[in-house]
Write a protein that binds this DNA or RNA. Structure first.
Lengths: 207, 207
DNA sequence: GCCAAAATGAAACATGCGTTTAAAATGCCA
DNA sequence: TGGCATTTTAAACGCATGTTTCATTTTGGC
């Protein structure tokens, strides 16, 4: 395996677990068994390494997700919000074919990208992959046409917050949950618990 | 104003905005117009400063919240989840009497305490103020007895994430919302939009 | 097999961090 | 007012970070 890939893999695992600011290049290069200077040689900087990491997943996820949302809109005449959110599951799980724990790693990275580093990654994602949000809004509107655009605005942000927060603290929560309920929990389990929650939240009756 | 209070106020604003790890003692002491060493002199360490900060709010919020939850449980024979979450509003808004933007600052700090610093603050809060969570769980259980304790666990954390994320991006979102819908929105308005969302999420049918 | 290009390695650099030190200033009470 | 405890100050300490340098080794095409 070449150095670049070794770095990407080691960085992904560490970043997902401990966040971007919480992981040093020395930890990464040590885990990858490469020289410290290799990161700056191959990627330019820590920021560029992070971008490359996200790009590896987003380039796969983005078209899959847009397709899945379009398909679920075409097929179902009376679309439910649960179906809209279900459309996320399969594209997300295909990320496991890219790398072991790919889905979990990506979602945790996404979570960290919203809370770490003054959100420079949020900007990177929303400007480079706008199709995801656009299709998502369309699908929600089709499933719940009565929802005012103002409620739509707020609830989409609430949903994003719920998902992102859940993902960035998933490893800690899974530990607690396994101690308290000694039940096996994985990332897919969390996703499937998330769906009824956010679908119900978005579908709430307006007051 | 004495040095200790100047530090607390400056630290609160900066921590709420940029997180604990994202804010240095030099920024804080500079904003507070006190000497760098004052933090370690008056509080002992950065960690103790953070604890003192949270304590200032939690000592007020905790009894208020416990009382409000007990009251809403006693009064209503047929309790709804909306009523449970409504019980949070007034105690949270009283934090604005402690300090300008107190409610918003506290909720943002709470959010950072879950994502920053390997969750040592989460431990601090749950072990020092168990009454909040206990009464909340009781109230939710009374309003929705069929909910399993495992679903309760996850939805409680989803809810916290939703609230925390909403609050941490509130100022930015309020600006956008006022431009797009020219409607007046403030913290209380966001909280009141949040209630039906999280109540509906917690109340979702289990799959 | 040679040589330029690419990659690696060890070390140092510059910076920012939380914390500590010890002297100076201030406050307070006898 | 004198003296002692409290507080403030400027400076430095030790450490970890991302990045850069430059010598060395490895690689790939002619």
């Amino acid at each position: 395996m070449d150095t670049k890939t070794k770095i990407l893999n080691a960085a992904e695992n560490l970043f997902a677990d401990k966040g971007f600011t919480g992981t040093s290049l020395r930890e990464i290069t040590s885990a990858a068994e490469v020289n410290l200077a290799a990161v700056n040689y191959h990627f330019g900087s820590k920021k560029e390494l992070i971008k490359a990491l996200m790009k590896r997943y987003l380039d796969v996820l983005s078209p899959e997700l847009e397709g899945a949302l379009l398909r679920v809109m075409e097929k179902n005449d009376d679309l439910s919000l649960d179906q809209v959110f279900e459309a996320f599951v399969e594209p997300l799980l295909t990320l496991n074919t890219l790398k072991e724990q790919g889905t979990s790693n990506f979602l945790q990275l996404l979570g960290h990208s919203y809370t770490d580093s003054q959100g420079f990654l949020r900007w990177f994602i929303t400007t480079n992959y706008p199709g995801i949000i656009d299709n998502f809004v369309l699908a929600v509107h089709k499933a719940y046409p009565q929802l005012s655009s103002e409620d739509m605005f707020w609830r989409l942000h609430f949903t994003m917050g719920t998902a992102v927060f859940a993902m960035s603290s998933t490893s800690a929560l899974i530990d607690i949950a396994q101690n308290d309920f000694d039940s096996e929990v994985d990332i897919e389990g969390v996703i499937r618990r998330l769906i009824p929650y956010v679908a119900s939240g978005v579908g709430a009756k307006s007051h």
